[in-house]
Amino acid sequence: MNSTNGTTTSVVLAGVGGQGILLASEIVARAAMIAGYQVKTNEVHGMAQRGGSVIAQIRYGKEVFSPLVAEGTARVFGALERVEGIRFAHYLAPDGLAVVSSQAIIPVTVSSGAAVYPMDAHDRLKAIFSRLIYVDAAIIASKIGNIRASNVVILGALSTGLNLPIEAWHEAVAQSVPPKHKDLNLRAFEEGRSQA
């Protein structure tokens, strides 16, 4: 297929509206910018944010055209919720790295009895991804001091699958979070990175 995708690195993040996907996306984009790349991102706003499944897409390289990641081309894929890790798995390239949080958020469709939450999510993730890091991101973040930093834990692990320098990540985290949460988020990032 004629495509310039080869020179562009694609990242996909998935989760549930309200989990901090947009902040995570901003950190990846900033890290790539700091590393000197052209960057494009895309996020979902509006109706899809009310507790629904959300994905964010980040692409960087010397020259980036589409802000959207084609299925099967993401170099890394991060999911903040384990079923969302399965739902959007097809974005990852066959040799890509997947980082999935073990956290489970039960959708209303399950609560109302219309659907079943799969209990074998971890096994299914292992079967789908050849390179999988399955992280207790919520537990790690809670131990550090704030469950809301789960997104940055996932990014830490995810960063091992990308070619951006560690300094760029640290600076991107520091720039993207409020100053009073900077140290906590940098620790979350390092904890995540050590899971890889």
Partner: peptide, 19 residues
């Protein structure tokens, strides 16, 4: 596509809902 087919056929839907 050389990617795995979408694995989401039997996954519970997560539509937007009243908060």
């Amino acid at each position: 596509p050389v990617v795995p087919v979408p694995q989401s056929k039997d996954l519970p839907g997560r539509p937007p809902v009243l908060c």
